[in-house]
């Protein structure tokens, strides 16, 4: 049966049929796979937080290795001793909530699932914003506080988790990205980049917030200078690196009142 594929009516019918078929196929795939995908993303967040705390499968100079998905739920519940949620507005922390208090007030949402992007838009709208903070212990038993950060890279979102001690010295860092260039910006997810942040100070001597710059010409490849507020940039990834500096500065600065308070107590 030969159809005249040049007729306008045929073209329109074909377009409609195609849209319906493809649309329902995609919708069906997306909705039937959603539970699995959500579960995977949930575990990934736990793995990332634990990674920043130093609870991971890294051995020697291996690639980044997360704790296995089989162990992650148990490790997360035992190693993260407290999930704190701070309510922040206009440079001040107006409320400090425990996990239970937060979940009570927010439809039973776990604090580690707080969407940092949504919270950032709340600040822009002039509303208060929730800052999650995960208290736990590293492998050596030091107390650390892990905070999520999020910002813009060259092509798409970049985000990460930074583990800090009570003086806001970095104890561990984890970065990830949605679509940075493989081999260039995507290298923020490499250990040699993340590991450089360990030991870097966020605060100046006087206690003011300075952040960490991903700096070109830092000339410190072994990262011997821990108090210069800078780590070596990646070749060919200037904008991604600037995105890292920005998100560290913008998001971690908000936690400053909490850490100041922690020190005086």
């Amino acid at each position: 049966m030969a159809v005249n594929t040049d007729k306008n009516s045929y073209t329109i019918l074909f377009a409609i049929a195609m849209v319906v078929v493809v649309g329902s196929l995609l919708a069906f795939t997306a909705s039937s796979l959603r539970p699995n995908i959500e579960e995977n993303e949930r575990m990934e967040k736990q793995q990332n937080i634990l990674y920043a705390m130093g609870i991971n499968g890294n051995e020697g100079t291996s690639d980044i290795t997360f704790i296995s998905t089989a162990e992650v739920a148990e490790a997360f519940s035992t190693k993260v001793s407290e999930q704190i949620v701070l309510e922040y507005k206009d440079g001040q922390i107006i409320q400090e909530m425990t996990r239970e208090e937060y979940m009570e007030a927010n439809n039973k949402q776990e604090p580690y699932l707080i969407d940092v992007k949504k919270q950032q838009t709340r600040t822009k709208e002039g509303k208060s914003r929730f800052l999650p903070l995960f208290k736990g212990a590293t492998k050596d038993g030091d107390t650390v506080y892990v905070a999520p950060i999020r910002g813009k890279g060259l092509w798409d979102a970049i985000w990460g988790y930074i583990a800090l001690d009570k003086n806001m010295v970095v104890k561990g860092a984890f970065f990830d990205h949605a679509g940075e260039t493989p081999g260039l910006g995507a290298n923020i997810k490499q250990r040699y980049f993340m590991d450089d942040f360990e030991g870097e100070h966020l605060l100046s001597e006087s206690g003011a917030f300075k952040g960490i710059n991903v700096a070109k010409g830092n000339n410190d490849p072994r990262n011997d200078r821990k108090e210069d507020h800078a780590v070596d940039a990646l070749a060919g990834a200037t904008i991604t690196g600037d995105g890292i500096s920005d998100m560290i500065r913008n998001d971690l600065k908000l936690y400053l009142p909490y850490f100041k308070n922690l020190k005086t107590n």
Binding site: V3, T5, D6, Y10, T11, F14, A15, M18, V22
Partner: peptide, 15 residues
């Protein structure tokens, strides 16, 4: 290939 309308073939390929 025999049922794709030639006028919108690029869009169909893209989809």
């Amino acid at each position: 290939r025999n049922i794709i309308p030639s006028k919108i073939r690029i869009i169909v390929q893209l989809i």
